[in-house]
Design a protein around this nucleic acid. Sequence first.
DNA 1: TGTACATCAGTGAACGCGCGTTCACTGATGTAC
DNA 2: TGTACATCAGTGAACGCGCGTTCACTGATGTAC
Lengths: 213, 213
Amino acid sequence: MSKKKYHHGDLKNALIEAGIEILAKDGLGALSLREVARQAGVSHTAPYAHYTDKQALIAAIATAGYEKLYAKLADVIQRCQASPAQQLVEAGWAYLEFAFDEPDHFKITFSGVIEKEKDYPAFVEISQKSFKLVVKIIETCQQTGVLPVGPSDLIAVSVWSLLHGLAPLILEEQISHTILDRYTSKEILVVSLNLMTQVKLDPPAFGLETEQT
Amino acid sequence: MSKKKYHHGDLKNALIEAGIEILAKDGLGALSLREVARQAGVSHTAPYAHYTDKQALIAAIATAGYEKLYAKLADVIQRCQASPAQQLVEAGWAYLEFAFDEPDHFKITFSGVIEKEKDYPAFVEISQKSFKLVVKIIETCQQTGVLPVGPSDLIAVSVWSLLHGLAPLILEEQISHTILDRYTSKEILVVSLNLMTQVKLDPPAFGLETEQT
DNA sequence: TGTACATCAGTGAACGCGCGTTCACTGATGTAC
DNA sequence: TGTACATCAGTGAACGCGCGTTCACTGATGTAC
């Protein structure tokens, strides 16, 4: 912890943290190797001891983002074991929360800022692990009739897409205010998921019926 | 058309075109005012006669993107008047096609690269007009029982989110190959939309049933 | 326990680069009389 | 139709900036004997 040590101790992770802070404070455009080094209190060439180039650091930051999502999802699965429908809603909400809490970290993680992702096996691995968690939730929902039967990975893609699209739309305020004034983000989420499920989710569906009246 | 004229004639639009070409050829990172001017065959300060700064040009390029989408949607509505379900699918496909054909133009248009969108009324206007077109399609689908009843603008947000999320997921190859090998992009789209609709869309739904078997 | 040495993790100067923007300017065009 | 002049749409030099990366280096640490 002492700041004067010549050797930092855990600069590799400190740089990731620094990067995340910069993203939170000044956004994607402000993320440079030099700024990250500055934030970590280290000379601007020190990062090269741990990352071959800027892309490598970005990949590490994105990987950390996925790890955060993974932890959130795992937690939801554990917490909501009793109710698959609730699992689905809370998983979706966890995703959106990440987007709202740390928009630019979210962006760098999920919006393809990292260029040749295949060069970063840790990133690929955690992203696949996360997707499998989503598939797992989908399958639980299918077994209890919350979601229709069918290839669970395909349905997972649909649900993931919905979340993946909803987040930026709300975040960038691309949804008109006539809607945002009427509904909270969570309500919009539940209504959207409701369109895909065969049973009503909690809270109530704002007049949406699965059969015409 | 003659290249030697001192006055360009329509530099304002030419710069937008140049920007779109740069996005197509070298991507978002290569889009600079200087490069745009170069591409348009004009000195690097000439753009300032037409745009107050870089953001203003980006806003104009994004506006052009929305105009393209608007035209596509309007065309779909006209072409598929007979079948609301087909309207829905084709509208979705039009959106995805844009993403696949011009990924970076798509990105700059829909992914919040433009910072203070409210400063650009033309952008706001065309984006709202486009959304209204989506709402219109949704309402047609509701009237024919393809989509459930309920607030059409809310359902439009759900559908828009789905498309908005699906595009980057496919584009950045964030969907695992075990899925992409089995289904085309259009099939994934139809299956996803099918989850939201009350009737089966064309082509067949790959084993997805709305009731459990 | 002491010492020699390899390795690791930092430093700071320097490089070349392209960028956005400002500035004083000039060539071309449109308009009033 | 001709002319004077304002305005418009360009030019090119110059600015300051922060960036990614390389380089020769050095201080700290770990290890073999």
